[in-house]
């Protein structure tokens, strides 16, 4: 199962949030991100990637080949590294010879799940030192305009002495009462084969992380977040059999008729058109 993948994939992930902030906007005092033109909520690609990394780190726990390159200051368990055979490289200036570069990139890809999956910018490599990973995520958007609510909370204990007389301090929480978001992604078999060696096992782990990443990411600000649907389109070959926007159009989300704004997943119905172009298979992972 360590073979690089041989099929092109597209996937749709539907996830929702209840009384929480899925992704705060640093420009707006951490209010939930919103598209100013439509009022729809946004969750950035990097926010979702962070969750995937954290999940893989949690499940694999520093297992060889599943290290995470972009992480919080946890030092790697380096025991397994000892096994690496010295390549006898002489440190040179920034521009490496192509064959040396290839070795470095290969080393990084073998060790780090997130570089194999998403790529990374390193000073190695030819094109500004980038390794392009096979998995490409775009911004997730909510199905309907979201309502940004600011909830004021109080705290009985105080931090500063000068607040002691007041007896309590006020704080703010920013939440979305409910939002159903849709993220779309692409996986290129060619980049897996040519560059990073993203394997069938890695793919299973990726699906697993998309389904479960919110389960291990609970916090006071997130509220109730859950993956609701993961729909995968598998092409029978590396290049694909059909345009992705046609496939993405096969999954439609509809509001149930109601006077009130949506407040739960039951307020939506999801229809999947299973009449697919030749050579594409639809897999419901969740």
């Amino acid at each position: 199962m360590n073979e690089p993948i041989r099929n092109r994939y597209e996937f749709i992930l539907l996830f929702d949030v209840e009384n929480g902030n899925p992704n705060g906007d640093p420009d707006m005092g951490n209010m939930p991100r919103v598209d100013p033109q439509t009022g729809h909520g946004i969750v950035t690609d990097v926010c979702l990637k962070r969750k995937i990394r954290d999940y893989v780190d949690l499940v694999k726990d520093g297992q060889e080949g599943y290290n995470i390159y972009v992480k919080s200051g946890v030092v790697l368990n380096d025991q397994n590294k000892k096994a690496y055979v010295a390549n006898g490289l002489e440190p040179t200036d920034k521009r490496q010879k192509p064959d040396v570069e290839a070795k470095l990139v290969q080393f990084m890809c073998q060790n780090f799940f997130d570089i194999r999956t998403f790529g990374a910018v390193m000073t190695t490599g030819v094109n500004c030192g980038q390794v392009r990973g096979p998995v490409q995520l775009s911004f997730a958007r909510s199905m309907d305009p979201i309502f940004q609510q600011e909830v004021t909370i109080t705290r009985r204990a105080v931090t500063n002495e000068k607040d002691a007389d007041a007896g309590q301090t006020m704080g703010k929480k920013q939440v979305v009462p409910y939002g159903l978001y849709r993220a779309e992604g692409y996986i290129s078999a060619n980049l897996a084969k040519k560059t990073t060696g993203f394997s069938e096992d890695d793919l299973i782990l990726l699906w697993d992380s998309l389904v479960n990443m919110f389960e291990h990411d609970h916090s006071a600000s997130r509220g109730k977040m859950a993956a609701r649907k993961l729909i995968v389109f598998k092409h029978e070959n590396e290049l694909g059999c059909c345009q992705s926007h046609i496939l993405f159009g096969k999954v439609q989300t509809k509001r149930q008729p109601s006077e009130l704004p949506p407040r739960s997943f039951e307020d939506y119905s999801i229809t999947i058109d299973r009449d697919l172009p030749k050579g594409v298979e639809l897999i419901e992972k969740l």
Binding site: N67, I68, Y69, Y84, A86
Partner: peptide, 11 residues
């Protein structure tokens, strides 16, 4: 890291 193996590689 490839040579000595006791380097912490992460961001």
């Amino acid at each position: 890291a490839m040579r000595e193996g006791n380097v912490s590689l992460y961001q």
